[in-house]
């Protein structure tokens, strides 16, 4: 199974070359959290979509792998990509800005990235990317309209909320959050395995 993870890493070599670009962003002092989230999700989803065309699934399902392993490897790879981005940010920030990033930022970054992936992966196993694109366009349209209608300055409010989270002193909340995200990730993993088991090629 680890050869499947290895394959994901090899195939994303070119994305990993993007990491210097990431450092450039750091130099412009953009939000570290934001960069981390965007890069991790983009790389993980890119890795997922490389395998999306079904002939490749025929290949991996014909090779000596089980369907469980194929799904599991994707979840491990996504985790590794996020970790690589986090490490790159840590090192980049240290050398460029001469600062050590607060660990809470990383917890928050992992929390948000893994939560997003937890939602996207099972949906992607179930539906085609075209279907998903249509649905997500419609949903985000509705969301924006609704949010603008009901909540004024919602972007500022989210910023304020994240600022509040990061300012929290109690470490306990962070541990609880990490725990909750892991449970979500594990649940998503089980759900994806269930969906993938029934998939027809």
């Amino acid at each position: 199974m680890f050869s499947l993870v290895r394959k994901d890493l090899i195939l994303q070599k070119s994305s990993i070359l993007l990491l210097p670009v990431l450092c450039a962003y750091l130099a412009f002092n953009t939000s570290i959290l934001w960069i981390g989230i965007v890069f991790s999700i983009v790389i993980s989803l890119n890795s997922f979509s490389t395998d999306e065309k079904s002939p490749i699934h025929i290949l991996f399902n014909s090779l000596p792998y089980t369907r469980k392993e194929i799904v599991t490897s994707k979840y491990i790879s996504a985790f590794i990509f996020t970790a690589v981005v986090a490490i790159a940010i840590f090192i980049g920030n240290y050398f460029i800005n001469g600062m050590i990033v607060d660990w809470k930022v990383f917890v928050l970054m992992f929390g948000i990235v893994l939560s997003v992936i937890s939602v996207i992966f099972p949906l992607s196993y179930k539906f085609t990317s075209n279907q998903l694109l249509m649905v997500s366009l419609v949903l985000s349209g509705i969301f924006l309209v609704a949010v603008n209608f009901f909540v004024k300055n919602w972007i500022d409010q989210i910023r304020a909320f994240i600022g509040w989270l990061l300012a929290l002193e109690g470490n306990q909340i962070y541990f609880m959050m990490a725990g909750a995200v892991f449970i979500l990730y594990a649940g998503s993993w089980l759900l994806s395995m269930y969906i993938y088991k029934k998939k027809v090629f």
Binding site: L11, T50, P55, I56, I58, L59, S62, P64, T66
Partner: peptide, 19 residues
Amino acid sequence: HEKEIKQRIGFVYDENILY
């Protein structure tokens, strides 16, 4: 025995299944 079986099979399909 899924993996054991597939270790011993070589397969060719009529469509391209390689990257």
